[in-house]
Design a protein around this nucleic acid. Structure first.
Length: 460
RNA sequence: GUGGUUGUAGCUCAGUUGGUUAGAGCGCUGGAUUGUGGUUCCAGAGGUCGCCGGUUCGAGCCCGGUCUUCCACCCCA
């Protein structure tokens, strides 16, 4: 009995039209990555459990897909640990591999393992799927693609500057308007926490602050207090909740607020430099603005942080993010390697572009010339012509069976082929071929030896 | 992980207070002078109503479970 086929929750099939559009995005991104000097690498879908666990916080560990060991793994587990039902204790015995959760941690592992072959500073890009055991929602999948570019072994602020330019160029090439690149600096956040006396609760503070534009100042205050930040501290921070105005004005207020915090002041001067340099360089489409509420959950960031929001008319959350992490490879034993990186969320960019109708229409027309099949003799002549066209670089195809002409035309129409070639008994006899323009319906006959004339017209 | 939501033909959906052989549009297949598609006309195929169990004389409809979809949290691309 046939079973009804299905695929796991949060995963998708991609049909030909979708793949062409996804490839368009991937090609646009990777072209710019290469133009900016990044080199491609790939890493395995699965990593050792220890490589991933503990890198994304307690919440992240829960979302890592674990791979069940092969063989009689239950034999190794004693009755006692089974009966205790302690997941944390038993998991390492059941599973020693997991699907990668992002591309940054595998990259850090890669850098450490290949440190002797790598010429630093190393600029790499990587476009591969990642997996998260999240609950699927719109723009949220359990299998999705990240497009990452990172530099390791470079401390200068010029890298951050380059990443803002890279974001700008990619979104310009994609034709996605209204993209805003929000920047902040982890040291500013540390400084604020320090000044208000909540340095111990930096993560709780930033996570709550990050929600400001979503839930409003009142709820943010509430959440901070619930997380154990003192009312006095929250009160002091409140002054920053309504921070607005020009970049200049915001920085001035921050400078005053953080004057007692050397760390905070350092963050301000870096951010200020970044913004002014970006303005000096100019952008081709996107805009760049300071957002001190931008926090980004991943706690390995230590310097500038970026986040790219979808255009306001499409509710989608962020379509990219990144930042500087001073010690990502430290946990794998390689100290003092500073890194900066950004990521593009392919699947969300796809949804945004689809919603706004921004994909070039020409993408789905793969085959340009389609030859009908009138029988054995005729199709042999047709195939010869098709091969000539293919060798000229024109995508051409031949219907495989000599079925009814109406059926072949119907097929050509549905596939959207712009030109149909007929070589029937008449054409074969006269050594000719007839071309039908499917849009206008007009037909023209060429001598077989003049096929290059036809090919030249297509390319014109 | 918490709370809610959805599931009927390939697709989009109807289906009255539980009551005979479950419908529509689109799509699909075939036909309307065997070398002409996208428009028209005619005919046809296609469903164990997500799955498992329960209530009932009787369940697409009620109840429980499960999977799936989408949404809000959490978190994030």
């Amino acid at each position: 009995m046939a079973q009804k086929p299905s695929i796991p929750k949060g995963t998708r099939d991609f049909n030909p039209g979708e793949v062409l559009k996804r490839n368009f995005i991937i090609q646009t991104i990777s072209r710019q990555f290469e133009r900016f000097g990044f080199q491609p690498i790939e890493t395995p879908a699965m990593e050792n459990m220890e490589t991933l666990m503990g890198k994304y916080g307690a919440e992240g560990d829960r979302l890592i897909f674990k791979i069940l060991n092969s063989g009689d793994f239950l034999k190794k587990i004693d009755r006692e640990s089974l009966e205790q039902k302690d997941i944390v204790q038993i998991t390492p015995l059941l599973s020693e591999k997991a699907l990668r959760y992002d591309l940054t941690v595998p990259f850090a592992r890669y850098v450490v393992m290949h440190q002797n072959e790598i010429d630093f500073p190393f600029k790499r890009y990587q476009i591969q799927p990642v997996w998260r055991a999240d609950r699927p929602q719109r723009g949220r999948f359990r299998e999705f693609y990240q497009c990452d570019a990172d530099v390791v072994g470079a401390k200068g602020l010029v890298q951050e500057l380059e990443f803002i330019q890279l974001y700008d160029r990619v979104f310009t090439d994609l034709g996605l308007p209204g993209v805003v690149i929000k920047v902040n600096h982890r040291k500013i956040l540390s400084g604020i926490a320090e000044v208000i006396g909540a340095a111990q609760r930096l993560t709780d503070f930033t996570v709550a602050l990050d929600k400001l534009d979503k839930i409003g100042p009142e709820k943010v205050r509430q959440e901070m207090i619930e997380k154990g930040i003192s009312e006095g501290a929250v009160q002091r921070a409140s002054a920053l909740f309504e921070l607005s105005g020009s970049t200049e004005a915001q920085l001035n207020i921050l400078r005053e607020f953080l004057s007692e915090s050397p760390v905070g002041m350092q963050g301000i001067s870096e951010l200020e430099l970044l913004i002014s340099q970006t303005e000096a360089l100019g952008m081709t489409g996107a805009t760049c603005q300071i957002d001190i509420t931008l926090a980004r959950g991943l706690n390995y960031y230590t310097g500038a942080i970026f986040e790219v929001s979808a255009p306001p008319e499409v509710p989608m959350g962020s379509i990219g993010g990144g930042g500087r992490y001073d010690d990502l490879t430290g946990i794998f034993g390689l100290r003092d390697v500073s890194g900066v990186g950004i990521s593009f969320g392919l699947d969300r960019i796809y949804l945004v572009m689809e919603e706004l109708g921004l994909f070039p229409v020409a993408l789905n027309q793969t085959v340009e010339v389609f030859c009908l099949n009138f029988g054995e003799q005729e199709s042999r002549a047709a195939l010869k012509l098709v091969m000539h066209l293919r060798d000229t670089g024109i995508p051409a195809d031949l219907y495989p069976d000599p079925v009814k002409v109406a059926k072949q035309f119907k097929y050509a129409d549905k596939r959207g082929f712009p030109y149909v070639i007929l070589i029937g008994a008449d054409e074969l006899r006269e050594d000719q071929f007839t071309v039908k323009d499917m849009k206008t319906g007009q037909q023209q006959t060429y001598a077989m030896e003049d096929w290059q004339t036809f090919a030249a017209q297509l390319n014109a």
